[in-house]
Amino acid sequence: MTLRVVRGGAPAAEAPATAPDGARAYVELAGVAKTYRRDGRQTHALERVDLAIRAGEFLAIVGPSGCGKSTLLRLVAGLHLPTSGETRVAGRIVDRPQTDLGIVFQSPVLLDWRTALANVLVQVELRGLDPRAYRERALNLLAQVGLKDFADRYPHELSGGMRQRVAIARALIHDAPLLLMDEPFGALDAQTREEMRLDLEALWLATRKTVLFITHSIDEAVLLADRVVVMSPRPGRIERIIDVGLPRPRGLPARRAPEFVQAAELITGIFLARGVLHGAGGETTQDQNP
């Protein structure tokens, strides 16, 4: 039995300081809630989330649009502060933007006036480090993400997938232990997504960083993650946490593995029950993004 289902949203009292199997938790959210207030209107984006991400774990979050996935990621990064509850990274309370991490958004947000190489190096420049010392490493990273011959190209000369690869290299250049990815493949076509997924897994296997990966593709979550957190529609809560027992590396055939099918169907079932997915049978994924 490789597929385990763990109930999420444990009561605050037993908010896990360690992940369920006793491994050291690198990221912890304890009773975290977030309410946005704007012009007197309130949006309850997240409602009492308890979650522990183990060091070196690849954790994916799936959930419908607007369920607070990005909010959760921003809370971990310290870009937003929780309305209640507490976020910890490496044991320290998150009360300001965190710097010991790499971040990738849905759009590559590259700087138009910099080449691919310079876009990777801006990460260290902004940190006040000498970019010359990182040049070799940046070129290696670009080669690793398949952009060996594109180091001197400007963003407008690159395809969408290539730009996102630059953004990934930029998130890795300073070798931070935590990688946050907010729907990084969301704007890419299906084939590019598949390639990016395989390359990301290879990168992760080589570095074993702690990864928080947000997506609304069930396939992507199951194929990439050690555990998949399934979120309910707004206000976001953790609906279920699913262990994915697929062996790695998970190449293209992983889609036919029974573990994959089982996990994907389980998540689809949850979404159907919650009214997130409509439509009768047959569909096991919601890979088509808007």
């Binding site: 971040i103 759009s107 006040g128």
Partner: peptide, 16 residues
């Protein structure tokens, strides 16, 4: 998002 990325580098406002 660009500014959020920049904030995760800890850069000062002049550098930014």
């Amino acid at each position: 998002d660009v500014m959020d990325f920049a904030r995760t580098t800890g850069a000062g406002s002049l550098t930014m």
